[in-house]
């Protein structure tokens, strides 16, 4: 646990405020951690993933004795500490051992606590510099493509999909520059084996990255061609820890209902002085017919006609 800091100047106050929870969150800052042994292949993979993730990537270049699946309590404590210290909400941990070579573990955090973990083994990698093609601009948002029915049916692959979206594209934005759609991260699976067999191995995951080339098609929508960019990874799913049910539920808290969102948009527009989309209503009240009212003094009430009219009008 970090000590609590009381801001002493405006700059540190702003820095602390930037860490406060937001309704619409920024991209997940990811820390890339090297385990006790990584090897050239894993180093390349992590470097390339970092290139894709930049500028929201932090590199831990020194070796760390971290084993999220074996030594849960100690590793979890380390992860939580790092998450707080760096205000990071995701980890990619590379670790290679004889039993599990080229292992890459994705750890997702919620409220500086570990939400879920997923380990994959890299089987084959073509790194980014090996493919001599133009690369995407750092910081541009990628398009994401997932191809297989298993991403919807198998919980292991659902988790993988959710994890990869969180890693590359978890940020909610309200507009995007169409000219800036430069690259695609495509995740596809090998052919699915006969279902309802628990022991059968899970199909290989193919992660490919392409840059897009938009060609004129004669319509508004361009025709797209893809050029391989790298990295190209072939992975196998290994161990995983699903999210704790209660934590998972809190992490999916609804921000706003659609009506509330519309209302807040309308209010901001109003505040800016724009009257676009604001419906102005006039309520019409029928005029009081004074001729039908009783005379100067109302019987019993002691109210004058003038007062009566005033009270009726208000």
């Amino acid at each position: 646990m970090l000590r609590t800091i009381k801001p002493k100047n405006a700059r540190s106050k702003r820095a602390l405020e930037a860490r406060q929870p937001k309704e619409v969150e920024d991209s997940r800052t990811t820390i890339f951690v090297k385990g006790t042994h990584t090897g050239q292949l894993l180093n390349n993979v992590m470097r390339d993933l970092m290139t894709l993730k930049r500028p929201d990537a932090i590199s831990f270049s020194k070796k760390n004795a971290i084993h999220p699946f074996e030594d849960a309590t100690k590793s979890t404590a380390s992860l939580e500490f790092w998450a707080q210290k760096n205000d990071a909400s995701m980890f990619v941990i590379g670790h290679s051992s004889k039993k599990r070579p080229h292992g890459l573990t994705f750890v997702r955090m919620f409220d500086y606590r570990v939400l879920d973990m997923l380990e994959v083994g890299i089987e084959n990698c073509v790194s980014m510099p090996e493919i001599k093609t133009p690369k995407s601009t750092p910081g541009n948002k990628p398009l994401m493509h997932f191809a297989s029915d298993l991403f919807d049916t198998n919980p292991r692959f659902t988790q993988l999909k959710s994890m990869l979206i969180s890693l590359f594209n978890g940020e909610v934005i309200d507009s995007i520059c169409l000219a800036g759609l430069e690259h695609v991260i495509s995740v596809s699976l090998g052919p699915s084996l006969p279902a309802n067999d628990e022991s059968s191995p899970l199909p290989t995951v193919h992660l490919r990255t392409y840059t897009t080339r938009l060609l004129a098609s004669g319509t508004r929508t361009p025709r797209v061609e893809l050029i391989s960019m790298g990295p190209s990874l072939d992975m196998k799913l290994r161990r995983h820890t699903p999210a704790d049910a209660e934590l998972f539920k809190t992490s999916h808290a609804e921000t706003q209902t659609e009506e509330e969102r519309d209302l807040s948009k309308l209010q901001t527009r109003k505040m800016k002085g724009l009257n676009i989309g604001v419906l102005v209503l006039n309520s019409h009240l029928a005029q009081l017919d004074a001729g039908l009212l009783p005379g100067e003094k109302l019987e019993g009430s002691g109210k004058s006609r003038k007062n009566f009219l005033r009270s009726a009008a208000s």
């Binding site: 409220d111 169409l178 992490s251």
Partner: peptide, 26 residues
């Protein structure tokens, strides 16, 4: 779309896929 200096900005609808948040709601 909305016009901007860099090119047209597409106005995106809110996402339909649920992704866990990184921090609790404020």
């Amino acid at each position: 779309t909305q016009r901007s200096d860099e090119g047209p900005l597409a106005q995106l609808p809110p996402p339909t896929t649920a992704i866990p948040r990184a921090k609790p709601l404020p």
